[in-house]
Design a protein around this nucleic acid. Structure first.
Lengths: 145, 145
DNA sequence: TCCCCCAGTTCCGTTGCGGTAACCGGCCCC
DNA sequence: GGGGCCGGTTACCGCAACGGAACTGGGGGA
């Protein structure tokens, strides 16, 4: 393999796994990005997505093939070889995925900070949320029990 | 009154429910869109999202509140009133959602057509090969044999 | 002969999202 | 005093997604 795939996106420990988007199944978006720079073989997809099991990867790829997002090309060679490639339709998802990545880069810290503040129990000092507490009580975490 | 929300997006029978994106939980994206034009009460969210159950809506809203996407304002009135509103962070998701909607408008027919073609017999565009279903060998570049 | 390669497939188990149904508690109206 | 409205909560459940491990199959090399 040649391309340096952004490892962080595929790292299950990466905070972006907490981000509020998903394209298709859990792995669909990552597969699209893995195929961004050209066709890849089954095993080449397993490597960067190293926590995906063959079963799930197969399911994902089949679903994507069905939806016209990838093509599957099997070569009748002595060690079997199968290549997956993006179709134009699949490629069109890249802009959307890129938009999601931009959002994540820009806003994920805010989201995570809000989460920490919420979990900490208090009304956040509202770096992002403000304004609408006219006559009311802005709730914090339910402090029941 | 009650803003004419694009009903199609909230209709479970709408083909866009087959689209390959999701923002957060199943309902998060729809909640964001419901709040696009101003705060809404719990019951006002249930109406357009009419298949959502109170439990799931509560869970969704709590998660969104935790992530700083919405604010929850409870008014101590005689019939209880609670309003949910987008934070700037939540509002920033709108561009992404809009991008997804644009993609859907432009490409969903292709996706659906590919699906139908695939289900109809395997080879989507180039029926040069034959007999393809489950273990399908999509005829590709006839490399060496 | 045995094992390895790739690209899966099959069986089985677990997780948790999403859904159903029922209940709660204050206040008002009938 | 019984119901209704509002905004939930709680208990329970089912299904689909996700995941682990083992197995397949045909050719090639040791």
């Amino acid at each position: 393999m040649t391309m340096r795939l952004d490892a962080d996106m595929f790292d299950p420990m990466c905070p972006s796994s907490a981000l509020p988007f998903q394209v298709g199944d859990k792995w669909t978006g990552m597969v699209v990005r893995c195929l961004e720079h050209g066709p890849r073989r089954f095993g080449e997809l397993r490597a960067p997505l190293r926590t995906v099991t063959p079963k799930v990867l197969t399911e994902t790829l089949r679903a994507m093939e069905r939806d016209g997002l990838v093509t599957r090309t099997a070569y009748e060679e002595n060690p079997p070889r199968v290549e997956y490639a993006l179709t134009p339709l699949g490629r069109s998802l890249l802009t959307l995925i890129e938009a999601a990545r931009v959002w994540t880069r820009e806003h994920l810290p805010d989201l995570l900070a809000a989460r920490v503040a919420y979990d900490a129990g208090g009304a956040p000092a509202a770096p992002t949320g403000s304004g609408v507490s006219a006559a009311g009580v802005v709730s914090g975490p339910p402090d029941n029990a």
